[in-house]
C-alpha cells in the first residue's frame, strides 16, 4: 500500500488540507486536487516554465516539486493575481494591452515569473527582462510583445505607486 500523507497548504490565501501520495507532483496537486487549473503543465521536466508558481514568494516550477513538500508553505498561482477577469492587476493589464499572449497556455507561467521580478526590478532594461523570462518558453509570440508588456507593466506600476 502506498504511503499517504496529510498536508496543509495555503494557496492564494486559502488553507487547504488534503491527503496525498508522496509522489504526487505539486503541479498535479494544484491542478487536479485543488482544481486551480490556471497553472499549466507543458513538459514535466523543468524546462518550459508553464507551471511556474510562487512558493513562499519565489517563482519555482511546480512540476519539479512534490505536493508533500508544500506542507506548511504558501503558494500563489495565477488565480491569486486578481479577484476576477474584470479586475486585472497591472501586469495582466499590460499583457492584455501589449498582446503579450496568443494561445495563452504559457502565460500564467510568465506572469508568475514576472511578479517577483518586477517587484525587485521596478525599472528593468530589455536585456534584464529577456534574461528574467528566459526560463519560460513561448511558442506563439516570439517574445517581442511579452517584452513590450513587461515594460508597460513596469511603467504602470510606477505610475500607480507615485
Amino acid at each position: 500500500m502506498n504511503q499517504i500523507m496529510k498536508i496543509s497548504v495555503t494557496v492564494n490565501g486559502v488553507l487547504y488540507e488534503r491527503s496525498v501520495e508522496p509522489r504526487l507532483l505539486l503541479s498535479d496537486f494544484i491542478r487536479h486536487e485543488l482544481g486551480l487549473t490556471g497553472t499549466h503543465v507543458g513538459c514535466e521536466h523543468g524546462v518550459c516554465g508553464a507551471c511556474t508558481i510562487l512558493f513562499d514568494g519565489a517563482a519555482v516550477r511546480s512540476c519539479l516539486m512534490f505536493a508533500v513538500q508544500a506542507d506548511a508553505h504558501e503558494i500563489v498561482t495565477v488565480e491569486g493575481l486578481s479577484p476576477d477577469p474584470q479586475h486585472l492587476d497591472a501586469l495582466q493589464e499590460a499583457f492584455w494591452e501589449a498582446h503579450g499572449l496568443q494561445c495563452g497556455f504559457c502565460t500564467p507561467g510568465f506572469l508568475m515569473t514576472l511578479k517577483p521580478f518586477l517587484a525587485q526590478n521596478p525599472d528593468p532594461s530589455d536585456e534584464e527582462i529577456r534574461e528574467a523570462i528566459s526560463g519560460n518558453l513561448c511558442r506563439c509570440t516570439g517574445y517581442e510583445h511579452i517584452v513590450d508588456a513587461v515594460k508597460l507593466a513596469a511603467a504602470k506600476m510606477k505610475e500607480s505607486s507615485s
Binding site: G38, V41, V78, E79, S82, L88, F95, E97, G104, F105
Partner: peptide, 21 residues
C-alpha cells in the same frame, strides 16, 4: 484592438482540455 479572449486567459479561467474534470 486588444483581444476579447485575454482576460480569461490572463486569470487562469480559460478552459483547456486538461482542465476538464
Amino acid at each position: 484592438i486588444k483581444r476579447n479572449e485575454d482576460p480569461a486567459l490572463l486569470t487562469g479561467q480559460a478552459l483547456f482540455t486538461d482542465d476538464v474534470h
